[in-house]
Design a binder for these strands. Structure first.
Length: 435
RNA sequence: GUGGCCGUAGCUCAGUUGGUUAGAGCGCCAGGUUGUGGCCCUGGAGGUCGGGGGUUCAAGUCCCCUCGGUCACCCCA
């Protein structure tokens, strides 16, 4: 065992297995970009206050925060999620609305790692500020759905719910609390003493005791005020109109308690592990104001990169591996040709690699083969003396010389317009690895 | 924070009731082919048996502690 290792709950994505990451991020970028969302980059750490506003009673804030006092005496925290940072940036910079942003990056939560759960994990997500139009909810939910579809992931369940707003949530909360208090003794041990703290949580409890009691509990969706009911109706109607299959899950209560009205989750039914939420989000019409900004409705989602990659492995569909090399230079005539040719071809837009350390021809050809390159460009003493390069097709074996000056042109012709599609693929054993 | 299972070469693993210099396959490097990969043959490099302590004439093997991994609870991405 090496002395120095990555910290618990973190991991390396090695060059040989980073293809799916790149594929996933570029797919997300183009999906969000096509809908008018633009990249936002915010700090990975913030003043701890940015995150405590997202809900003092949530586990994320209470016990999972990676916070510390820095050398300047500031109490900061590595972000446990990105939404709070985006809201902070929105308030700080006051952009004109509607304001639509997407992001990708690390998040940190101090928890015991397990399948699909890490201390540093990655999310991609979008946030849209300044509109309470239910059709924006539909756009956001659909974007996430389409993202999974574009990756070819099968078996995603879309769960939607409405948590109401300031007008109808308190009344419902009281109604639910009355119902639960009457059955308090039959709830699970955990919730028996915490009903008043957050009655909605009980609905989400997975224990048998609670489930039995909450089966007939009043539901928020049945107790929405007129405007929330109309909003939710428009959202579900929109999803139906766009043929996005969803299921109303009245017990869906998300972990961050800033959500209002629409909440949703993408559940991976293909995952064997118990962490099967691929992503989730909702509307948070009160958060901007709660964090000191102007009253501004907003909606967004976050999707877990690791879990989505797990889902890709589980469904057996993998993103196309990245293109490999066009050519690999084999030079055993001193190295000048390798040095010059790689530069020339790379500047011309080709993907080219070479060997170093003056290795034997055999070793260099072996390296060329392993690189997945389509052609080997061979320069030995004979070719060097004649100012030639031998182009060898690595899939077959035939080889013929061309003049040094004709190399680029000839190679381009042989590659067939140099399209990416002409590159050989390669299997990626790392695709089914976790993460 | 709590619990189950697991730590032997880069990877996947074997190692007999504790008993001599700890093995295999794959991978890597070299040679077979004075200049040619993918197949084959031969050879080589690579290990404080996660770490520490204990029991014993003797520990990879048994005991304790610790670190790490993994899965689950909780919660969530």
């Amino acid at each position: 065992m090496p002395e120095l290792r990555n910290p618990p709950g973190t991991f390396d994505v090695l060059p040989s297995e980073s293809g799916p990451w790149q594929e996933m991020l570029s797919t997300f970028a183009s999906t969000a970009g096509a809908a008018g969302y633009e990249l936002i980059v915010t700090p990975t750490f913030e003043d701890v206050g940015v995150f405590t506003r997202i809900g003092e009673s949530t586990d994320v804030v209470r016990k999972e925060m990676y916070d510390f006092v820095d050398k300047g005496g500031r109490h900061v925290a590595l972000r446990p999620e990105v939404t709070a940072s985006v809201v902070r940036a929105f308030i700080q910079h006051r952009p004109v609305t509607p304001w639509k942003a997407w992001y990708a990056g690390s998040n940190f939560r101090f928890e015991r790692p397990q399948a699909g759960r890490f201390r540093e994990f990655h999310q991609v997500g979008i946030e849209a500020f300044g509109s309470s139009d239910p059709d924006l909810d539909v756009e956001v939910v659909t974007l996430g759905w389409d993202f999974f579809a574009r990756l070819g992931i099968k078996g995603v369940d879309l769960l939607v719910n409405s948590l109401g707003d300031a007008a109808c949530r308190p009344a419902y909360r009281q109604k639910l609390l009355d119902y639960l208090m009457a059955r308090r003794g039959d709830l699970c041990e955990e919730h028996r003493g915490r009903v008043e703290e957050n009655p909605l949580r009980v609905l989400d409890c997975k224990r048998e005791a609670c489930r039995a009691q909450t089966a007939g509990a009043p539901l928020q969706v049945d107790n929405l005020c007129d405007s929330c009911a109309a909003h939710f109706e428009r959202v579900t109607a929109g999803l139906s109109a766009l043929s996005v299959p969803y299921r109303v899950e009245a017990h869906l209560v998300r972990g961050l308690d800033y959500y209002t009205r629409t909440t949703f989750e993408y559940a991976g039914t293909m995952l064997e592990s118990s962490q099967n939420a691929l992503g989730g989000g909702g509307r948070y019409d009160g958060l901007v104001q709660a964090m000191g900004g102007p009253p501004t409705p907003a909606v967004g989602f976050a999707i877990g990169v690791e879990r989505t990659l797990l889902a890709l492995g589980a469904t057996g569909t993998s993103p196309r591996p990245p293109a490999r090399l066009h050519a690999f230079v084999v030079d055993f005539a001193g190295g000048d040709a390798a040095r010059d040719i790689t530069r020339e071809l790379r500047q011309a837009g080709l993907r080219v690699d070479r060997a170093f350390d003056d290795r034997s021809p055999k070793a260099q050809f072996k390296a060329a083969d392993r690189s997945g390159a389509r052609f080997a460009l061979v320069v030995g003493p004979d070719e060097a003396a004649a100012s030639q390069v031998a182009i060898k097709d690595l899939s077959g074996g035939e080889q013929h010389p061309v003049g040094r000056g004709d190399l680029l042109e000839t190679l381009r012709a042989m590659l067939g317009a140099g399209s990416e599609a002409s590159l050989p693929g390669r299997s990626h054993p790392g695709y089914n690895r976790t993460p």
